[in-house]
Amino acid sequence: MNPLPVECPRCAFEEISLLATSPVPGVWDVVQCGRCLYTWRTIEPARRTRRDAYPDSFKLTAEDIENAIEVPAVPPLLK
C-alpha cells in the first residue's frame, strides 16, 4: 500500500480512507473521501485524482452535500 492521498479532489476534505488495493501488490489503491464519498483509483488521470486538475463543474462543497435533496424522500412512518 502506498501513502494515502491527503485530500479529496472533489470536495477538498482531508480524511481519505482505503477501500481496496491492487491484487498485484503496489500498483494502485482505491480510496474514498470520508465526506462526499468520491471514490477513485490512485492511478487514474489527474483530472480525476488531483484537486488542482479536477473539473470545477464536478466539485462539491460542504453546503452542496448538506443541502442535497433526498430521492426518494423518506415517507412518514405509519402509525
Binding site: 472533489r10 481496496a20 482505491v30 474514498q32 462526499c36 464519498l37 468520491y38 471514490t39 477513485w40 483509483r41 487514474e44 483530472r47 480525476r48 473539473p55 463543474s57 464536478f58
Partner: peptide, 12 residues
C-alpha cells in the same frame, strides 16, 4: 474488478 465509467462519476 470494479472501475469508473465517466470522468464526473462519483465512483464505481
Amino acid at each position: 474488478p470494479l472501475f469508473r465509467l465517466n470522468d464526473g462519476d462519483g465512483g464505481f
